[in-house]
């Protein structure tokens, strides 16, 4: 049962990047269409599941002091194999995703899960966690990609959805659309969280850097937590 729980938590409760704000670069960059989002997600599932498995298998061998370097090397080897596989079997997608395929190495999600989960849990749990988080990430990317493609092109997976009268918002498939779309989705998630917590009277689930806690990779969190901004806000 524990394995199932580890798997399902990635699908909604800890779904990156909507619930845990991790791995934003590929999320913003490749989601110009639903197809690209799905492809990127599949690539991340591959790397994340295998890296979780390998890290978990080697967790007793790796010395604590150099663990981050070891995790990065494991992830990098997997990404190299992924690149070769994609060049052989999915060259179109490889060209589409471009620079973001090698950049999976420095995706916060991979390192974050290795550090926060796989280094402390057994192999089966780690694989379940990797698969769950990977599938959650894929769903999020596909959703964002569909939304942007729908609004920006009027298509979904390349199929025309709206009639000729629809005037596409070209901005949605360009850079600004990515930021605005994701921002609004996160706001929507906050809204859902508050509604859920007010209904169950449970602890409110926070979205953002505070929730992840363990992102060895994500550069953001630590400095931000050092100096709370309340005092400054009051001055103004």
């Amino acid at each position: 049962m524990a394995v199932v729980k580890e798997f399902t938590k990635g699908l909604w409760k800890e779904m990156p990047p909507f619930r845990l704000v991790l791995g934003l670069c590929p999320t913003l960059a490749v989601t110009t269409s639903a197809e690209n989002g799905l492809g990127m997600g599949a690539a991340v599932i591959f790397v994340l599941t295998l890296s979780n498995m390998l890290v978990s298998m080697m967790r007793h061998i790796i010395p604590k002091t150099v663990r981050i370097a070891c995790f990065i090397v494991i992830a990098a080897s997997l990404v190299v194999s992924l690149e070769l596989l994609m060049q052989a079997y999915a060259y179109g997608l490889y060209e589409q995703l471009g620079i973001f395929v090698p950049l999976i190495v420095v995706n916060c999600i991979i390192l974050g899960r290795a550090e926060a989960f796989a280094a402390k849990h057994g192999v089966a749990d780690s694989i379940a966690d990797g698969l769950g988080i990977g599938i959650g990430f894929t769903m999020a990317l596909t959703f964002l990609g569909s939304l942007r493609e729908l609004l920006g092109n009027g298509t979904l997976f390349g199929v025309q959805v709206f009639g000729d009268a629809f005037q596409p918002f070209t901005i949605m498939v360009k850079a600004p659309g990515a930021f605005i779309c994701l921002g609004l989705i996160l706001a929507g998630m906050n809204c859902i969280n508050r509604w859920q917590s007010s209904r169950s009277e449970g602890e409110p689930v926070s979205v953002g850097c505070q929730a992840c806690g363990a992102c060895g990779g994500c550069a953001g969190c630590k400095p931000a937590q050092l100096k709370p901004m309340e005092s400054k806000a009051k001055e103004g």
């Binding site: 704000v21 991790l22 934003l24 670069c25 950049l103 550069a219 953001g220």
Partner: peptide, 10 residues
């Protein structure tokens, strides 16, 4: 879209 984590965090 490169380096967005520190962009939002720092």
């Amino acid at each position: 879209f490169l380096g967005n984590c520190p962009y939002l965090g720092c």
